[in-house]
Structure formats: C-alpha cells, structure tokens
Amino acid sequence: MGEHAATGLEKWLLDKTGKDIYFWNFQVLMFFTLFEVGAVFFEEIPGTDIAITRFMVWAILIVVGIIKGYGIAAYFMHLKGDPRIYTRTALFPVLFVLLMLWGIGLSNPEAVTELPSWCTPDWENFATQR
C-alpha cells in the first residue's frame, strides 16, 4: 500500500481520466461484486432464456474471486509496484494452502482411513520390531 510514482496503466488512467488507480480498482471491484451476487440472485441471464447452471455459477464465483483477489492484493495492498520480494513472501503460504486444499479439501471421504499402503506406516510391526 506504500505510495510510489504512477507507471504504466496507473499513469495512463491518471492522465486520461484524472482519477488514480485506487479509484478505478474500486470501481472494478464493485462491478464484479455486483456480477457475483447477481449470478446467484438470478436463475436466468436477464433478458434471455439462458439458464444460469450450477457450473456457470461455479465458474463465475471462481473467476470473479480471482479478479477481486488480484485487485485487492495488487493495487490496494500495493504488491504491484513494490519490490518482488513482498509478492514472493505473500505468495509463499499459497503453496501450503494449495497442498492443504489438495490433501484435505479435495480428498475423497475415505482418504483418511483408506490411504494407499505406500504412504501408510506399518505402526504395529514397527513397534514390535523396536
């Protein structure tokens, strides 16, 4: 969130509109939040007969979540424009989060009791041998 000189897109927006990147990021976040909530409020795309299916809702929620997460982290938290080490530090726990989601969140219901033999310690024999 530290202040630094506007460059690239930030400078272009400032020059063209007179409003800074925080203002435009706020607008984008508000728009996508409206889109996200709308996906659940409506059963059909307004003005059409196209049904909003379960998978369409999933896709909208995931894509909008990524866009909003990027907007908050990159511009409000100002990781974009700060030294890369801050981004790397912030992304480091994501590795563990992904492992946790894969290992716990997306494991099958029997994952704990029916682990494959190669990753199940043979505790009884291990104890006997010792």
Binding site: P93, V97, M100, L101, I104, G105, L106, P109
Partner: peptide
Amino acid sequence: MSEVMVFATFFSSYLRVRTEWCTKWA
C-alpha cells in the same frame, strides 16, 4: 502467513465435508 493458513484450514475443512454431503445441487 499464519492468518492465511488459519483461513485456509477452515476453507479446506469446508471443502472436505462439502464434497461428501448430499446437497440439493449434488
């Protein structure tokens, strides 16, 4: 980092039980 892990724990636990539930969508 610890805060990210705290919320990741809740989220992965939720996903874990959610995939097992017979919800209306499922």
